[in-house]
Amino acid sequence: MSLTEKQIERYSRHIILEQVGGKGQEKLLRSKVLIIGAGGLGAPAGLYLAAAGVGTIGIVDCDKVDLTNLQRQIIHHTSDVGVEKIKSAENKMRAINPDITVQTYQTRVDAKNISDIIRKYDFVIDGTDNFPAKFLINDACYFEKIPFSHAGILRFHGQLITVLPGETTCYRCIFSAPPPANAVPSCSQAGVLGVLAGVIGSLQATEAIKYLLGLGKLLTGTLLTYDALEMNFRAVKLNRNPNCPLCGGKPKITELKDEEQVVCDLKNCKC
């Protein structure tokens, strides 16, 4: 595959980068990234990956756009309220860049469907809002050996880590299981500064592109935490956990299983 005139123009600011070049851009166009969750984190990740010319972008979500989403989920516009998030996201990504193919999955990932979905992709972005999904993505990516970016945001804080399954620290190395039900703040107690999603989701997209192009040093074995109030980033070194129930020496988890949803049921909770 070689770049067309239009593509050389469109991606000129990439191509001019010594570390990317025409070859790198062609590689991006051949790459496949899956974004799970078309919400706060998935929105900037989807927009930037589309703009960057990542050739195939998959997007998984089962929700419709709600008015409360618009404060941070910048891929959705006011006119999209009531529209399926995957449809709304696909429209924006295709509008930015008709070069790319968008695969949509109108579903919630679970232990039965996730492996078949992720298997087709080079890299996965976890943009989900709930712990069962985060553990499921971690486990499924481990079994399928697909690198992924995990992230979370809450109030004025965000964090992310990149996982090369079986090689670097995984989510379960840090948190062996979801928190107990009574420990999780209820919907009304928590909130998030909308722009946090933009900061962290954009960093996830950066990691995806670096992985696809083999550039620089990935955020592996290191949890990057961001405190917006202190305007402080910290890189916390986290070694692999020999007792990890998934990737440790004596794994307890040997097949995919759905974790219990531990807090307010999703139907009443606009996330």
Binding site: D129, K134, H157, P179, V262
Partner: peptide, 14 residues
């Protein structure tokens, strides 16, 4: 010592 916190994704850490 590092305290590491669970964080969800959207508006809520659910």
């Amino acid at each position: 010592v590092e305290f590491l916190y669970f964080m969800g994704g959207g508006s809520v850490s659910n």
